[in-house]
């Protein structure tokens, strides 16, 4: 039926270029239908035959376009073909992974490979965090007033210079009966993730704000350590901090390193144009960051639930140490190359 109509129409058109169009129009319409369905995400309504036909039809229509550009002056048809070829091109050369296969690739080596790729920046970030801790400690040791500069008053609570050993110790233990722990964990996760994403994003300004953020946040850690050390609670505070801290501080370290990686690639792009170097660094760093958010989810659970429920320093240190060993092994010893590339 369609063919008879087509033949009639082909006979009717006066121009050669319009006859060309009429002969190929069914293919164009078919591609348009497939593309529209795929764009709407209705893959299930497409048969396998349609999917297999997509690249074939795409090439057919693309060649129609190049012929039409040389032979036709019908602006509307040219515009239609250009838009159709563009839409099909985005699908044929579009993202080829499903979320599931991306995740498999991500955990199966891509994440750890990206972490290793920013190794130099990780060392720099680590040095900065250690320096920040040391500065916090030394300045407080010199003049206890510094403590108030590093630790915000609302966060410090009873934990201030001059507090008794019992008061300090009470902050570390005996919270197993407390309510709302999981809410605490969830909000910690949400808050920490925002901060680390910020830390990463600020790397864009050549990494300088990231450096400052890393040092600033660890001075608080140094100040707290100094405070508890003064009351001979070093072992206890180490346990209290490490159960989640090995994961959380590691995540902060990685986000800082990822930010620095971008900043460095823009300041010193090497042989590549800046814009190219920034794009490569950004893509690598974003894989690290996706992992950082997952690490913070772990850290949130460990801090909100684990630390409150595990009330013993030795056990806390074991969990914290275990997590650290796990992350280090996963990132640096697990050197599997992920299967299949996305390009």
């Amino acid at each position: 039926m369609a063919t008879r109509q087509n033949i009639a129409a082909i006979e009717a058109a006066a121009l050669r270029s319009d006859r060309f169009r009429q002969e190929r129009e069914p293919d164009w319409k078919r591609l348009e239908l497939i593309v529209t369905r795929m764009e709407k995400g209705r893959l299930r309504r497409l048969s396998d035959a349609d999917l297999l036909e997509l690249p074939v039809l795409y090439r057919t229509v693309a060649s129609s376009l190049s012929v039409a550009r040389e032979t036709s002056l019908d602006a509307a048809t040219l515009a239609y073909l250009e838009s159709l070829v563009q839409r099909a091109w985005f699908l044929v050369y579009g993202p080829r992974t499903t979320l599931w296969s991306w995740l498999r690739r991500f955990f199966g080596g891509e994440w750890s490979r990206s972490v290793r790729a920013i190794g130099p920046e990780i060392l720099v970030a680590l040095a900065l965090m250690l320096a920040g801790t040391l500065i916090g400690w030394l300045l407080c040791a010199q003049d206890p007033d510094w403590f108030y500069a590093f630790v915000p008053t609302d966060l410090a609570g009873d934990r201030i210079p001059g507090a008794t050993r019992e008061a300090l110790r009470a902050g570390l233990f005996g919270k197993t009966e407390e309510e709302g722990l999981s809410i605490f964990a969830a909000s910690l996760f949400s808050h920490n993730s925002s901060v680390t994403i910020l830390c990463f994003a600020l790397g864009f300004a050549f990494g300088v704000p990231t450096l400052m953020l890393l040092v600033h946040n660890t001075t608080m850690l140094g100040a707290l350590l100094w405070l508890y050390h003064g009351q001979e609670l070093t072992y206890e505070i180490a346990g209290w901090l490490s159960i989640h801290g090995t994961t959380e501080l590691f995540a902060i370290l990685l986000s800082g390193a990822a930010g620095l990686h971008i900043g460095r690639s823009m300041a010193f792009p090497g042989d590549l144009p800046v814009i190219e170097a920034a794009a490569r660094a950004g893509q690598r760093a974003s894989v690290v960051m996706a992992g950082v958010v997952l690490m913070l989810l772990c850290a949130g659970l460990l801090e909100g639930l684990g630390r409150q429920l595990v009330d013993d320093t030795a056990q806390r240190l074991m969990i914290g140490g275990g997590m650290l060993v796990f992350w280090l092994t996963y990132f640096f010893a697990f050197r599997r190359v992920p299967q299949g590339s996305e390009d």
Binding site: A9, A14, D18, E25, S83, E276, A279, G282, Q283, A285
Partner: peptide, 22 residues
């Protein structure tokens, strides 16, 4: 966009118009 290596482009959806020479 700079960091990701992307840009934002127009995505026109043009309908096929009638043949004029029939």
């Amino acid at each position: 966009d700079l960091i990701a290596g992307t840009w934002v482009v127009e995505a026109p959806k043009t309908k096929l118009e009638q043949v004029l020479s029939t």
